[in-house]
Nucleic acid binder design. Sequence first.
RNA 1: GGUCACGUGGCCGAGGGGCUAGGCACAGCUCUGCAAAAGCUGCUACAGCGGUUCGAGUCCGCUCGUGACCUCCA
Length: 494
Amino acid sequence: MSTPKKLPFHLTNTLSRKKEEFTPLNPPHVGLYVCGPTVYSDVHLGNVRSFTTFDVLYRWLSHIGYTVRYVRNITDVGHLVDDVDAGEDKIAKRARLEQLEPMEIVQKYTNGFHDVMRLFNVRNPSIEPTATAHLIEQIGMVQRIIDNGYAYVVNGSVYFDVPKFAAKHNYGELSGRRIDELLTNTRDTEGMDEKRSPLDFAIWKKAEAGHLMHWPSPWGEGFPGWHLECSVMSTKYLGMTFDIHGGGMDLKFPHHECEIAQSVAADGQAPVRYWMHGNMLTVNGRKMAKSEGNGFTPEELVTGNHKLLERGYSAMTVRFFMLQSHYASTLDFSNAALQAAEKGLEKMMAAVVTLAALKGGDGPASAEVAALEQACYDAMNDDLNTPIMIAHLFDGVRMINSANDGKLALSREDIARLNGLFNAMLFDVLGMRKEEEARGDDGALEGVMRLIIEMRSEAKATRNFALSDRIRDQLAAVGISIKDSKEGSTWDRK
RNA sequence: GGUCACGUGGCCGAGGGGCUAGGCACAGCUCUGCAAAAGCUGCUACAGCGGUUCGAGUCCGCUCGUGACCUCCA
């Protein structure tokens, strides 16, 4: 029996803007770093899309045989906000509003983030480092950058010297910016008067009076700059140069560009071989963002308690909806699209149940099933093309249902392979979860339903359709649907 | 203002020089006590205008429209 070809994997590298064959630095190991959340507020659905994208990447790399060390950080230091709140740390700001310790805020939203990840069946990373636990390393990196002449100290703050760096290195290669263009388009930002060039960015910032989160450093009390933590934590756990760095499109510039500059300036090595950027979730064509105020929380999503939501949707419906578009495309949120995804997912899940009960005939594996397997691998290996892979799975759904209707002959071998394929692709790779599992049903309902179905079948046998229809209607009213077939009746929660 | 994307059928959304995407919705048929489910069939589109080509939704140019980044943001 043929087995599908599982390699090679191709992904779009933002550095080259092209699809490239992926080859790890030290196979079979893969180092993967993804920018995690800033824990000063609830994560919204746009954040979930990004983490889901990289969750699927992690799952896929593991599935095709790589040993992945997946590092996803927690940003708990807080970054400078705009000039309205000049100098005030985001986390400190919220802490004052809510009269909590900064680390209490951090803990609260970290817990919330983890709850959301669990709800959407996003796997835990191998390492989840926090910025506050890596202050020593961050100070060390600042010092190395200063020692190498790419940063200067002004009044207790340390700034990265972008023009000096750009003179020798390719600053802007990731985001496609050019120094001279950037210079004509800068706006006033914090610390402008201290910077030699408006393009320079802080890698260590002096703590002003009242600033709650600060640490001692060779340059005085302060806190680390915007982009430093990712540079430090990625290379600490994955090496000076590692395989894949992921994040949202909106982080490409300046965040990731600065990460590259910092690593090169400090250690002389480009940190990342493949950069991968996920696109934005939009609402009515506009990016979902904290600053836009158009996001909803998972609670609002599930309950439907939000003005943009006609009703609630399960986390798995939303996950499936997201995976039906490519990660590099924008995806527009809408109730109609969510409802279509919900129906599609129900159909696919029903087919999985049908498949488990199918009895195949004798005979060899069919070419169709083998082709389907290969098509799924090819789709995923082509830059993680989940929508195509899902389209192939729906072809499998049709095969399963046709076989169940007696219109297609499948061998035991075919059925075993389809079972394996759906388990691998739908559950392991796409990370779908059966809703009953998510709900945590025990066996009691199953037993009760078996009894009710048996009694209803007796009513039908005596042509007491008034009773059998009443049972079906009443069950429907409490969210349980009954479906009759030649072999008997099945039930499902809806 | 600068840079970069995108515009696909009733809706969502892939593809990316010749080959059925898929899902949802809708209509008809089959099955069925009725329903639901399922299967089959139908609806077959690529913003507009030019160009390249034997052939363009796919490449090039222009126009219009939308968005992202340039500032914390997945």
